[in-house]
């Protein structure tokens, strides 16, 4: 007597909501400036510079889907950039592609180690992730300042020119950072939606007790979400460093807020139990598009913040009302 309606094919409004908001915004942008809707602006410029936040936000999606929070991503980013740049500088004038490849590996490793530290303190120390990552945020920021001797760290212009195409180059016409975001998102979506680990992340985020009573090693799942977050920051930094070839104390500042905003706009709930990878990427892009539209428009420079905030709230209203309808 079971009644079952197959609804798999139904258009999923929940997942589409951030994209609808993005589409509306892009339509708006088209009126603001004739060059807004060009490949050079939207892809070459805006999508490319979204890449760091997008990749970090993908990592944050895992942490938040499991009910956690990581405020330290901006500082991890600065610290990883610092370590990477110092390593690259140590190579001297002969440093080349091989060294850059090793530096990329190093960045991901250091990122993962920072995530591991966050995860261990949270799970083994049984401390709220808010406090733990607030602490590591301050610690890593200070370690970066120490590495940079209070200023900035830069690599030689020659080495930078070798590494630069990783940010500014394209492959079949698509900027490499954009391709990287797509690749990271694809792997992340597979991990979250198709694997046992991803299922456990969602379970832990929606109810830790149920997960524990179902035999899931809750702490191990949480630990891995922080490590994934760290790896994502590492990947993001390997795209950030070739852009300016340097990092200073402004590197990664407020990135945690941007990442968390992107995740929430994307439809992942702060309280955990859902995770929307594509939505997160759309959310990150949406934030950057807002900034782009405002610079291209002739809004009074002092009012840009107000307009920006208003647009974000309207975008959330559009998105949430669509989510409720489905």
């Amino acid at each position: 007597m079971t009644v079952m309606t197959k609804t798999r094919a139904r258009f999923n409004l929940k997942a589409a909501a951030p994209f609808v908001a993005l589409f509306v915004l892009i339509a708006l942008g088209a009126f603001v400036h004739p060059k807004f809707l060009t490949f050079d602006n939207l892809v070459q410029n805006v999508a490319t510079r979204t890449s760091f936040i997008a990749i970090i936000a993908i990592g944050a999606t895992f942490v938040m889907a499991s009910g956690g929070l990581d405020l330290s991503v901006g500082s991890i980013a600065a610290f990883v950039a610092g370590v990477m740049l110092i390593y690259l500088k140590s190579g001297g004038p002969e440093a080349g592609v091989g060294m850059i490849a090793l530096a990329i590996g190093l960045a991901i490793l250091v990122g993962a180690a920072c995530g591991l530290a966050n995860g261990l303190i949270t799970t083994v120390g049984k401390i709220e992730p808010f406090i733990v990552t607030l602490g590591t945020m301050v610690i890593l920021r200070s370690l970066f300042t120490y590495l940079a001797n209070g200023g900035s760290i830069s690599i030689s212009p020659d080495l930078k020119d070798i590494y630069a195409p990783v940010y500014s180059g394209t492959f079949v016409g698509v900027p490499i950072p954009v391709l990287t975001v797509l690749a990271v998102a694809a792997v992340a979506a597979f991990l979250l939606y198709r694997t046992v680990f991803g299922r456990h992340v969602i379970a832990v985020g929606s109810n830790e007790d149920v997960a524990r009573y179902s035999g899931i090693a809750v702490n191990r799942v949480k630990l891995w979400t922080y490590i994934i977050q760290g790896i994502c920051v590492g990947i993001a930094i390997t795209l950030y460093v070739p852009r300016l070839g340097s990092a200073n104390s402004a590197t990664g500042l407020f990135w945690e807020l941007q990442a968390i905003t992107a995740v929430v706009i994307g439809g992942t709930l702060l309280k955990g139990g859902t995770g929307r990878i594509a939505g997160t990427v759309a959310g990150a892009f949406l934030l950057e598009v807002i900034g782009n539209i405002l610079t291209l428009s002739n809004v009074n420079v002092y009012l840009i913040g107000a307009v920006q905030g208003t647009i974000i709230i309207i975008a959330m209203l559009v998105q949430r009302s669509l989510m409720r309808k489905s």
Binding site: I202, N207, D209, V210
Partner: peptide, 22 residues
């Protein structure tokens, strides 16, 4: 405590069914 420790109330039936025996 079926609702607090047995089932993930916000998740689909299939996810709940296979959670322990995934």
């Amino acid at each position: 405590d079926r609702k607090g420790k047995g089932l993930l109330l916000s998740q689909p039936l299939g996810t709940n069914l296979t959670l322990a025996a995934l």
